[in-house]
Design a protein around this nucleic acid. Sequence first.
DNA 1: ATAATATAACACCCAATGGTTTCGTGTCAA
DNA 2: TTGACACGAAACCATTGGGTGTTATATTAT
Lengths: 122, 122
Amino acid sequence: MSSSAEKYDVFQAIADPTRREVLKLLTQKELSISNITSYFPMSRTAVAKHLHILSEAKLVSGRKVGREKLYRLQPESLEELKQWLSFFEQFWNNKLSILKHVVENDEQAGLQVIETECDEQK
Amino acid sequence: MSSSAEKYDVFQAIADPTRREVLKLLTQKELSISNITSYFPMSRTAVAKHLHILSEAKLVSGRKVGREKLYRLQPESLEELKQWLSFFEQFWNNKLSILKHVVENDEQAGLQVIETECDEQK
DNA sequence: ATAATATAACACCCAATGGTTTCGTGTCAA
DNA sequence: TTGACACGAAACCATTGGGTGTTATATTAT
């Protein structure tokens, strides 16, 4: 690891529950690696690796303060995720309205009904 | 019964570029496995595995039609991702002021509280 | 200076991932 | 019925990821 090229993008970075929890922690304030480690049942080295991955994805940034390294959130990088999501938003709003229609007419099976119901081909 | 013990959640499902591409394809219309495979430089089995993962994450659903299995997008599951994202949204434009505010008033322990707490722009 | 602390840098292990191929089964069409 | 097609399941393999521990280095405190 420790490659110069970035192997991790935002999508991979947030795929891990531990890393998502770290991000949540960092919304509070800057934290050192050891400090963050105290919240998790794993070694400091493991947490440092997670932080390195988050750092590659530009979701956090670390600055050296004395002998500690303080990490802080860099939430702007989540913009990429938001934009990716917005592409699908139109589709699932559409789906939800259809779902509502289905539920109104037949309200037993819910989500599973839809897959045999609406099939608009382009 | 909301199923149980799913190996793959939404976050892991979208971590893979191939799977994201599959989702994009499925926004157009239902597609069979072989049809989807034609878009990728990998075997049909590999694509089927990706589809299985997407299915576990409830991002797609498949129905058998004759000897084909047609997959369709199930974008409602992206709602979970959207909600996760919305938690951080409040931080990435005015993160400095909020961060300062949080540090001054309260320390940790309130991770879950914060999402209902500070949603006002300063 | 010395000791204690915090992080970095490695080497190593195990499990999971992502791909392959092969084989079997059910389905559609001559 | 026969054969091509679409899929599923399983075995298999290479690579990577996340975990461990150990050691090294730099900073702070005494």
